[in-house]
């Protein structure tokens, strides 16, 4: 089965849902696979813990639920503690190292990689692109969606006047993913 499950998590306002949307769009529209995104829809989407789930598959996707993700992105300590303790050892865990202390759970998963996404975004002058930097890191580390597809999905999902900024943010994250850790 080619089914890949992804959970993107953090707190409301970080662009978590948008990140999940962009991953799904990259897979469905630009990589020509099937993708289903579901999201937490309560008050939590406006502050507090927040998560988006994406399923990507070459086949038709019947069950939209993410039960055992192959990739977990955690952009907050709360999200990390909640979700990272439940994933398998094979799961790739991507965290923002300034927001998440990976040792907060009893067993750090072997495939855990970190990037200072928010700090890098602040260096670029726009803290809001931290999620896009993380998407670059995601594309490079996991290969779940192609680099080209992710870039196209980002550019087509943000206001045109911010396209260049977001493209640069994506590349920043992607480049760092290619450096040895």
């Amino acid at each position: 089965m080619s089914r890949t499950e992804i959970r993107v998590s953090g707190f409301g306002g970080q662009g978590i849902i948008l990140s999940g949307y962009i991953i799904g769009k990259a897979a469905a529209i630009y990589d020509k696979k099937n993708a289903t995104m579901t999201q937490a829809y309560g008050p939590e989407s406006r502050g507090g813990a927040c998560a988006a789930q994406v399923v990507i598959s070459e086949q038709e996707i019947d069950d939209p639920e993410v039960s055992s993700p192959q990739v977990l992105v955690a952009m907050s300590q709360e999200a990390y503690t909640t979700f990272a303790s439940k994933v398998s050892d094979e799961c790739t865990v991507l965290i923002d190292e300034d927001l998440v202390d990976p040792t907060a759970i009893s067993k750090v998963r072997p495939q855990t990689f970190s990037i200072p996404a928010v700090r890098l975004a602040e260096e670029m002058g726009k803290k809001v692109v931290a999620n896009i930097i993380m998407l670059g890191f995601f594309a490079g580390k996991t290969g779940v969606v192609s680099r080209e597809a992710m870039e196209q999905a980002i550019v087509s999902s943000v206001p045109p006047r911010f396209a260049e900024l977001n493209r640069k943010a994506f590349e920043r994250g992607y480049d760092i993913s290619q450096q040895a850790q």
Binding site: A35, T36, M37, T38, Q39
Partner: peptide
Amino acid sequence: DEVVGHMTEK
């Protein structure tokens, strides 16, 4: 239903 309504797909 809520899941179909809020689910995002192609």
